[in-house]
Simulated scan of single mutants.
Amino acid sequence: MVTRAPTDDLLRSGEPPARTGQSGAVAPHAAKALSRELFTRLRAEEEGTARHQQVRTALIEMNLSLVRFIARRFRGRPEEWDDIVQVGTIGLIKAVDRFDVGRNVEFSTFAIPYIGGEIKRFFRDTSWAVHVPRSLQEQRIDLARARDTLTGRQGRDPTIAELAAHMERSVEQVTEVMVASNGYTTECLDTPTGTGHSDDHALALTARLGVSDPALENIENVHALKDLLGRLNAQEQALVRLRFGHGLTQTQIGARLGVSQMQVSRLLTRVLSGLREGMLTDTPHDRI
């Protein structure tokens, strides 16, 4: 015979029911039997009153064993146990607020999908290191199952085309899911890496990544200079080409162009000053 004393005494006294510690003393079978009666009482009370809140709290705390039961399925996850239980309790509260005793369905049957769904939603929203659309998160699981199935069947890793055919998706869609899956986990750039051999130095990942090429800094300057050279007249372009392209002296350039060495010097000084000023004053938009 199920004892009704703990809950009935608390409700008669007008005091709020015991919190998690005391409510845990109510066995699951006892909670199951008492829940139906309490739901009937809950619907009879006016929402927002102290009495309604007392009955609602009693229902939530008596059924916390459901949360712990479902949460145990996820014990292998890296998330904290208390966080999983807390999120599952949110699902339990939603189930209590939406349960209709007139449906002739056990509350535990109704509440389990709410609790499990809330926990799974928590994992979807927090487990990924990089946020990606929920649809891609769900397809990642389908992709992993398809890969396992085809690998076991073929004895090798499947190609993207084979995965797409098995999943009944296009190659582009499967590729998108594969790229998005890279956002599930990340590595710290300071994490030591190595092959594990004694002669291998455990360098940080940053030490194994490429460094900036100093020559890249000159790319913008080269493009800007190319535009500025195009603005020179034919004589000025020939002067620059002979001096810096062919490495001729000012005297040799003067002989080629039919001018004196002094004129070459003045022309060269004026051209270089104009180019230098253009490099310093032109905006990126002007250089395009």
Rank of each mutant, 00 (worst) to 15 (best):
D199C: 06
E176A: 15
V177I: 06
L143E: 01
V222M: 15
S212I: 03
D190G: 01
T193M: 07
H131K: 14
V211W: 00
L232G: 04
R140L: 03
G230V: 05
L163F: 04
L209F: 04
H131W: 04
T151Q: 10
D142H: 11
H166I: 04
N233R: 13
V171G: 05
T175W: 01
K226P: 03
Q137E: 13
P133M: 02
R208T: 09
G196A: 08
V177C: 03
P133W: 02
A204C: 08
T193Q: 09
E138T: 02
H201I: 13
T191Q: 15
M167S: 06
V171K: 05
L209Q: 13
E220F: 12
L150H: 07
C188I: 11
H197Q: 12
G210L: 07
G230Q: 09
A204K: 11
V174Q: 01
A161N: 11
T175V: 05
T185D: 08
R147T: 09
L229K: 04
A165C: 07
P192Q: 09
L229C: 13
L232W: 09
A180F: 02
A224S: 10
N221F: 14
A161W: 00
R147F: 07
G155T: 07
D227G: 15
L216Y: 12
R156F: 08
T195Y: 06
T175G: 09
Q154M: 09
D148M: 10
A144T: 09
E162T: 05
K226A: 14
A204W: 08
T149W: 04
V171N: 10
I219H: 12
R134H: 08
P192L: 07
R156G: 12
V211F: 00
L228M: 08
M167T: 06
V211D: 01
L163G: 00
G230Y: 05
V130C: 04
L143Y: 01
E172S: 13
N233F: 11
R147P: 01
L216E: 15
G194M: 10
D227N: 15
Q139E: 14
E162M: 07
R231K: 13
A204I: 06
L205K: 13
